[in-house]
Computed example of a mutant assay.
Amino acid sequence: MPSLLLLLFMIFFLLESMAAIIGNGFIIIVLGKEWVQCWTLPPGDMILASLGISRFFLQWATVLSNFYMYFFPSNKKLYFGIFWSFTNVATFWFTTWLAVFYCVKISSFTHPIFLWLKWRISRYVPWLLLWSLVICTLICISSFLKTYLVFQLPVTGNHSEKTTLDDRTRALQMHFFLPLQMFILLIPFFFFLVSIILLISSLYRHMGNMQHHSAGPQDLSMQVHTTTLKSLFFFLILYTSYVLPLIISLRARISVCSSQFWISQVVIYAGISIHPAFLILNNSRLRRALKKMLHDPEAA
């Protein structure tokens, strides 16, 4: 029987997950309808749809995996981790491409590389998403090999042979799979961080240039840039709140039956549950669909 504190965080995690599933499901439905009607989507919405799909299935994989491990701790034939790895890496890359896309489109840098990317980033979006799926597939194969080596290889012999196999399994986890997971998580986060820094730098420079002009119509543009800057900081906080606890949880394995585990899950997936609402409110197409649904639920 779980303690009151453990039960409280399990319920909170479940409610948080349902919010993420509903929010990302709404994004998928709205942009999916748009794609069915037009057979195409703008590049930014294409990334949003991909991100919504990956987060939707990531949250389902997390919920099923966590509760499965809690209620069936002795069953080691568990492959939820493979699907979780696929959707997790996809979420990382799609989030990164969203930041890169906004960075290239909004930034006011005049460097030839930025000008070249600004004109070509839209046509490269489908290819970036496709290569992200290829990377996710390779990671999925790696995760499958890990699961097979750890859980499926038969263990025979005396106690010393079993102990040796356990030591080799832990060594393989510490010296190969864990560094690989860390590497996979940090590369897209690095690109995301660089994109945000460049965009913040561009916005600050643009705001500095605007201060030299007379007040009036320029004030509206200043407000828009300030709002964008605040949004980016919020986006960065949410992404960091997902990355850092996830890396810590990979380094220090915590029992699924402990309160610390469920607290970490609440912290890790808080951003995924909050960010869909932020994306909906800041995307004109999604915002119109939400207003239409609230005013006329039957039409939605």
Rank of each mutant, 00 (worst) to 15 (best):
Ser255Arg: 05
Ser74Lys: 15
Leu232Tyr: 02
Leu199Val: 05
Phe56Ile: 04
Lys118Leu: 03
Phe92Gln: 03
Ile248Pro: 05
Met18Val: 15
Asn282Val: 07
Thr169Pro: 01
Leu279Ile: 03
Leu165Ala: 14
Ser54Thr: 14
Ala289Met: 02
His159Phe: 12
Val89Tyr: 05
Ile29Trp: 06
Leu58Asn: 07
Leu133Phe: 07
Leu6Thr: 11
Trp116Gln: 04
Phe12Cys: 15
Leu290Ala: 13
Tyr269Gln: 06
Leu290Ile: 04
Thr164Ala: 14
Pro179Val: 08
Leu51Cys: 01
Gln152Cys: 07
Ser195Phe: 08
Arg120Gln: 08
Ala49Ile: 03
Ile280Tyr: 00
Tyr239Arg: 10
Gln260His: 12
Ser214Phe: 14
Ala171Tyr: 11
Leu5Gln: 11
Pro112Ile: 05
Leu117Phe: 03
Leu193Ile: 00
Thr96Trp: 02
Trp131Asn: 14
Val194Asp: 05
Ile272Pro: 02
Trp93Cys: 01
Ile248Leu: 14
Tyr102Ile: 10
Ser241Met: 14
Gln173Pro: 04
Ser258Glu: 10
Phe80Ala: 03
Phe190Arg: 00
Leu203Glu: 09
Thr163Leu: 13
Val267His: 06
Phe83Lys: 04
Ser160Glu: 14
Met174Arg: 13
Leu51Thr: 01
Leu229Met: 12
Phe189Trp: 09
Phe114Thr: 06
Ala20Val: 06
Val125Leu: 01
Ser221Leu: 13
Cys136Tyr: 02
Thr164Leu: 14
Thr91Asp: 01
Asn66Gly: 09
Leu286Cys: 08
Leu133Asp: 03
Asn66Ala: 15
Ser85Val: 12
Ala289His: 03
Ser241Asn: 13
Arg288Met: 03
Asp167Ile: 10
Thr110Gln: 13
Leu193Gln: 03
Asn88Ile: 01
Leu133His: 09
Ala99Gln: 01
Leu290Thr: 04
Tyr70Ile: 05
Gln152Asn: 08
Cys140Pro: 01
Leu198Asn: 10
Leu229Asn: 11
Thr40Trp: 08
Leu178Lys: 15
Pro179Gln: 11
Thr137Arg: 06
Trp97Cys: 00
Trp93Ile: 00
Thr40Arg: 15
Val36His: 13
Ile11Trp: 09
Ser221Glu: 15
Val30Ile: 13
Ser264Glu: 04
Thr62Met: 07
Ile272Met: 04
Leu186Phe: 05
Gly32Thr: 05
Phe177Asp: 06
Gln152Phe: 05
Leu153Tyr: 06
Arg287His: 09
Ser143Trp: 04
Asp166Gly: 10
Ile29Val: 13
Ile27Leu: 06
Leu220Asp: 12
Asn24Phe: 01
Leu78Tyr: 14
Thr62Asn: 05
Leu129Thr: 05
Val134Cys: 09
Phe183Thr: 06
Asp296Cys: 12
Leu290Phe: 11
Phe261Ser: 10
Met46Ile: 00
Val134Asn: 10
Ile53Trp: 00
Ile200Asn: 11
Leu246Glu: 03
Leu279Gly: 00
Arg287Tyr: 08
Ser214Glu: 15
His206Leu: 14
Lys33Ala: 08
Arg205Asp: 06
Ile274Met: 11
Leu149Thr: 13
Lys162Trp: 03
Ile248Arg: 09
Asn209Leu: 09
